[in-house]
Design a protein around this nucleic acid. Sequence first.
DNA 1: CTCCTCTTGTGAATAATTTCACAATCTCAA
DNA 2: TTGAGATTGTGAAATTATTCACAAGAGGAG
Lengths: 217, 217
Amino acid sequence: MPERTPEELVTFPKATISRFPLYFRALTEYNHQNIGLVSSEEMAQKVGVTPSQLRKDLSYFGSLGIRGAGYDVAYLLAKIKEILGMDRQRRLGIIGAGRMGMALAGYSGFKQHGLEVLALFDIDRAKWGPVNEQLTVFPLSELAAQREKLGLEIAVLTVPKAEAQKVAELAVEAGFRALWNFAPVRLEVPPEVIVQYEDIVVGVLTLSHHLARKFGT
Amino acid sequence: MPERTPEELVTFPKATISRFPLYFRALTEYNHQNIGLVSSEEMAQKVGVTPSQLRKDLSYFGSLGIRGAGYDVAYLLAKIKEILGMDRQRRLGIIGAGRMGMALAGYSGFKQHGLEVLALFDIDRAKWGPVNEQLTVFPLSELAAQREKLGLEIAVLTVPKAEAQKVAELAVEAGFRALWNFAPVRLEVPPEVIVQYEDIVVGVLTLSHHLARKFGT
DNA sequence: CTCCTCTTGTGAATAATTTCACAATCTCAA
DNA sequence: TTGAGATTGTGAAATTATTCACAAGAGGAG
Ligand SMILES: NC(=O)c1ccc[n+]([C@@H]2O[C@H](COP(=O)([O-])OP(=O)(O)OC[C@H]3O[C@@H](n4cnc5c(N)ncnc54)[C@H](O)[C@@H]3O)[C@@H](O)[C@H]2O)c1
Ligand SMILES: NC(=O)c1ccc[n+]([C@@H]2O[C@H](COP(=O)([O-])OP(=O)(O)OC[C@H]3O[C@@H](n4cnc5c(N)ncnc54)[C@H](O)[C@@H]3O)[C@@H](O)[C@H]2O)c1
């Protein structure tokens, strides 16, 4: 019987993971500038966190730096890729080839993060067909087949909010275990499915609130 | 000498404000369904928080419910609008009429939150001109004039990341005090300017991390 | 008017996250 | 090889956020 993996069970704040993309981008820049070693102070300054927060964040994943010297840029970059699951390509399928779906499909920033949009799906037949050399909009009925064929792992939901629950269920049926939902609704899905919500108005309403508070307008 | 306003100085968790849009949408739905009164239990269930969290969040802004009965939907809706600064229209100008800028410009979800996109700006003259009946892409040089004329309060930055710092400075010069930045870079701005960052890859990389952890892939 | 039921509002308790502060230990120069 | 200087890694302290639990009303029935 294969022994159960010991499952290194470190727990860490949820916010820690959300800071890793910042660290990743800073390190990528250092790498481009041929900087091989960087201190927590320098890097923290660049991304706008405290040095101790940066060190603590990294420490949850082991002893990744060199005492007395700093962090090896290339090594830390590799480690962060591993932690974020960027050490292998993640393939995305976008459901809903409307304004938001198409904007995401054309986003050039995904590539450097190991993310790749390989297909779009829509219910509207007018949208079916190739978008460019690499990308095609498929009928929704192709969801399961293309997921399998292209190795899609993450379903991006950019359909109208009234459709989101139904489409989420179709995605789960088609074998997706990770959903990235842009529609402003809470989804009911089986417990093994991970849902990440992207609520775009939160940011701008936070601004609006600050304007109301600070400037009284 | 006019006395300093007492400045009701309640402090509350930052996350509190980010939950208000959820409450707002739930209440809007109750309103549509002609439900006049709702309990914290019912509403919390709907948005996916605990009832005590919902009550605590609201309590920072006063005693907004009716003991023994629940919350008056219409009243609470009005209060939340006030808190989020949605009781008056907020006008947005989008700088960068590319894929993301155009997707946001066409987003129908802003209206119900009291947000209104009134202009786009771009450096590329090929983009200048009317988009539809209500919306025009202006040359970047029009920024200050149109901000004043249209009453724009929030500048949305959807320019390439290499341009973002420069564009932020132009926006501040043009009189904007609130920036909503979609470019993945930290901006240096004067302290009186509020910046809200929208880092789109954080969400999907969080998913990627969970996939890597949970399913080992 | 009184009593009973219901649900809020909120201090206090608990939990989570961040910051502090310093021992550990690496580098480099002589 | 040693010592000085630098910077990490991390328990402990401080701070911030959430949950608990119940007193304080509100409302309705009789
Ligand atoms: N546009 C934005 O900037 C923006 C911002 C934040 C969130 N969103 C959210 O993203 C979603 C899409 O917004 P949008 O502005 O792109 O809308 P859109 O109307 O431009 O696009 C929606 C697309 O979904 C397709 N569709 C409808 N029902 C479908 C179904 N059952 N299966 C598959 N495809 C279906 C439509 O044919 C259309 O192509 C909405 O939920 C919206 O709230 C949009
Ligand atoms: N497309 C997406 O889904 C997406 C998602 C997240 C973040 N973003 C970010 O949003 C920004 C724009 O992305 P995009 O995909 O829309 O790019 P894009 O290339 O489609 O659009 C950029 C637009 O900005 C204009 N521009 C360039 N320099 C300018 C300047 N100095 N002043 C004014 N306008 C200028 C260009 O003419 C173009 O119209 C980038 O920073 C990107 O990282 C995009």
